[in-house]
Nucleic acid binder design. Structure first.
Lengths: 135, 135
DNA sequence: CTACATCCTCCAGTCTTTGGAGGATCAAGC
DNA sequence: GCTTGATCCTCCAAAGACTGGAGGATGTAG
């Protein structure tokens, strides 16, 4: 199979080249194989893994959580419950924020029309943000 | 009115003392008045402002966005549209993530039961994360 | 053979906190 | 008045997750 250079991997996953090297440093991506001249080479598995990582990051998983999930996935006999626990713990924290964001969005939609011509003095947006937490 | 010390402000807003000082450094909170011995004092307006900031941060607004919103709010004659624009731009980015999170959550709920006893090899959680972005 | 893109390493900076060291100040109790 | 403990001060360092640049080697296309 065709080996990819780091730039191509970056293009396929949307990650920056430097970010990929950073992921290797912290052990989130494996140590890449190298060509004779020292360039990193990647395969399809790396594309999948990096996509998984980018996705997880955008969903708010920390690199540590992702590391755990990946290392769990590499032990096919292990209990799946551990992975579920990580994901659930993470999602628990996420749900509250989602709810508040949804609320803020609604408020913002309601307000957006009035606002476009109005003055700051009557602007509801700030109140919407200020109160999106209280309930 | 009673002046608050920084610790009391922290208690009322949930921010750490150090964080409040940091906000002052970057101009997100105003330079606090000081007692003779140099301690910062705060009033009710500061409590409101800091609550607004904490809220905004938890909703994902950057400190720069919050600075803009606050400075807009201090010019009551300015067009409210600018504030709406900031908030809308921010929310646009947020909606996609919300949708994907909602999807992931659903997937996770579906899967959580099967998973608790199963093996990693059949675990759907990783797929759920890997694909939460694709659609 | 000359450009030019891409790669390498290493280092520095960004952003938003959080924590700690070392020292001053305050309120309360003895 | 003096000690104790809490709180405050400033300054500095680190954490987490990148991002960018300098300086140099390598690969490729014309």
């Amino acid at each position: 199979m065709a080996m990819l250079m780091i730039g191509e991997l970056a293009r396929r996953t949307g990650a920056k080249v430097n970010t990929i090297r950073f992921y290797e440093d912290i052990g989130l991506m494996p140590l890449a194989a190298r060509t004779d001249s020292g360039r990193r080479t990647y395969g399809e598995a790396d594309v999948r893994r990096l996509k998984f990582i980018r996705n997880g990051r955008e969903l708010g998983f920390s690199t540590e959580e992702l590391k755990s999930l990946i290392s769990l996935s590499e032990q096919p006999d292990r209990d799946c419950g551990a992975a579920a626990a990580i994901a659930r713990r993470h999602l628990a924290g996420v749900e509250a924020r989602m709810a508040r964001l949804a609320l803020l969005r609604t408020e913002l939609e309601e307000v957006a029309f009035n606002c476009d011509g109005g003055h700051m003095a009557d602007c509801q947006i700030l109140e919407a943000i200020a109160e999106a937490g209280s309930r």
